[in-house]
Design a protein around this nucleic acid. Sequence first.
DNA 1: AGGTTCGCATAGCCCAACTATATAGCCGTG
DNA 2: CACGGCTATATAGTTGGGCTATGCGAACCT
Lengths: 152, 152
Amino acid sequence: MRTSDLIGDLVSVNHRLTRLAAAATDNAESPAVWRTLSVLRDLGPMRLGELARVSRVSQPTMTKLVHALGDRGWVRRIPDADDARAWLISTDPRGLAALAAWREELAGALAPTFDDLDDAERAVLAQAVDILRSRLERADQPARATQPAASA
Amino acid sequence: MRTSDLIGDLVSVNHRLTRLAAAATDNAESPAVWRTLSVLRDLGPMRLGELARVSRVSQPTMTKLVHALGDRGWVRRIPDADDARAWLISTDPRGLAALAAWREELAGALAPTFDDLDDAERAVLAQAVDILRSRLERADQPARATQPAASA
DNA sequence: AGGTTCGCATAGCCCAACTATATAGCCGTG
DNA sequence: CACGGCTATATAGTTGGGCTATGCGAACCT
């Protein structure tokens, strides 16, 4: 299979899975909330602008998101001691708890669709997640401009 | 790994991939357009309401989408001979061409991220797509109420 | 010290998604 | 065969995430 067809199929099935996930929970929260919390959980505290680049949204969008998350107590905005303009954004334990709860709810809602996976299929999906994650993180590197990649 | 964690990771990485895809092309079209065309291409012509259920959007949302697609000549609205209220929605060759062009553009934009996949990784991703597709289609069955599943 | 660049905030827009409701055609029943 | 109820799509109006353009203050660099 050509790589370009694979990418097309991947993104298409992705969009359908996204809709299924959105429809499966009557949850009021948006993907943006969980995406942001996941990024912070996986990559640690970072500045607002960097968070925007890694999340692939514009800086104003991230400003709104972080404010909304801060109002709910799900993230903390820590003044950057080195730069009075900047903030470090960090998860709050309540945010991580909310994220975990959402994952549980989602898994429960999608269980009827996926609970007949056998071990081999689970392994394939887990590997696919790892592959995608590695490529996404590499694609994030240019966005995390703080530490320039040490060219070997 | 617990299935619920797997599902959470899958959806999370999904959301990040969606953002990457959205940011990668300066494309003006929305995911909804390509999702709808993909469904019609894969499953064939169907009524508007059924298309809405399979696409996991509300019927009014699909009405707007189909009108927009019809205006661009990307789908055809065929009066249902059996029911004057209903339409059969079908892809137009121009819609399929647009879909193919988008897939090419997307693949080109994401190539830098994915062109170092080796054969084993490509195979894993292709299998993952198949697994997800099969489960999504099974989840669609209740939505395609027209032909009741022939219980063996 | 002054101009430029950088980091975040604000303003205003667009569009996809939703709910609620309207319109119109089918269908069964007395 | 008229009428009530259901079904299929359309319309109205709202919400909310995303964007671009721009403002404002802090940092940086001559």
